[in-house]
Design a protein around this nucleic acid. Structure first.
Lengths: 152, 152
DNA sequence: GCGCATTATGTGACTACGCAACTACTTTAG
DNA sequence: CTAAAGTAGTTGCGTAGTCACATAATGCGC
């Protein structure tokens, strides 16, 4: 089991290392978000985008496009956030089919609490390990891989 | 919403880029494995480790430790692989509590087919974008983050 | 304006996994 | 040697997310 169809040692170190590192960091992050605000990373990401958005509101479609979830998955994330009182749904006036997720005051509060803890954790576990120069390089790496992906 | 508790642009590019890139690549990879061998990435990883192992067998405990799954998750992965005829379970003689997952001949065949397709895809989507120098650097990045993680 | 393909969202059925509890065995303290 | 603690694996239950489909509204072609 060692021919040219197998990964080389170097490929394994770069690719396998990425997978392992991501998986382990992600578990830490999910645990931290659960402890600080009782939410998952998917939910956190929705709150993040809403906090950035004009009027703290975005269409579900838009949220789904920018995340890795399907529209149906996003519908359920928003449903959970709504149950928790962190967002509300509003019908879109300009498009009778559509709906907005809107960040509530409570949602903004919870989000800020989660964000503080989250940023500290990601810095401690990851970002602090690298110089600004290296972070720039990393981000250039990611934009390079971007191009190989079939546009959604 | 723009104080020192928020990610900087650079941090967002490096960290957010990593998350987005990983998520999208991972979806492509899962789709490819499903098409070429009808297995998930978790299942593929088990077959990979078994193919490397002495006697093509490993304890479930060992498999769980080296993956991101819990023992219970691993028990279910092996159950699926067994149903598909790709591995068998064998009681461990040296420890009455334990069990080995053992790669079957069919499992090895399916794995080789999946591996070929998988390696080609990962190279095309990711590895080909980088020089050997850059891959080395990347792998060094990952081993650096390794150290911030609470050892299992 | 009318019909039809398209699009935004929601939902039922299903799968994968984690957690906690259980069984059976092993190891360690004494 | 025995009792207690720990460990490997399995399993019931709950949750998150997908896919396929249903529903309703949009807008294009004519």
């Amino acid at each position: 089991m060692a021919n040219e169809d197998d990964f080389t040692k170097l490929e394994m170190a770069a690719w396998g290392g990425l997978l392992g590192m991501h998986a382990r960091l992600f578990k830490e992050i999910e645990a931290d978000l659960a402890a600080s605000a009782g939410i998952s990373h998917a939910e956190f990401e929705v709150l993040l985008r809403l906090s950035w958005a004009e009027g703290r509101r975005l269409r579900l479609q838009e949220l789904a496009e920018r995340s890795i979830l399907t529209r149906s998955g996003m519908s359920r994330v928003v449903e959970r956030l709504e149950k928790a009182g962190l967002v509300t749904r509003e019908a879109a006036r300009e498009d009778g089919r559509g709906a907005y997720a809107v960040l509530t005051r409570q949602g903004l509060g919870e989000f800020r609490k989660a964000l503080r803890s989250h940023v500290a954790l990601v810095r401690r576990l990851f970002l602090k390990r690298f110089s600004a120069r290296e972070l720039e390089q990393m981000s250039e790496f990611w934009s390079r891989t971007w191009q190989s992906l079939p546009g959604h």
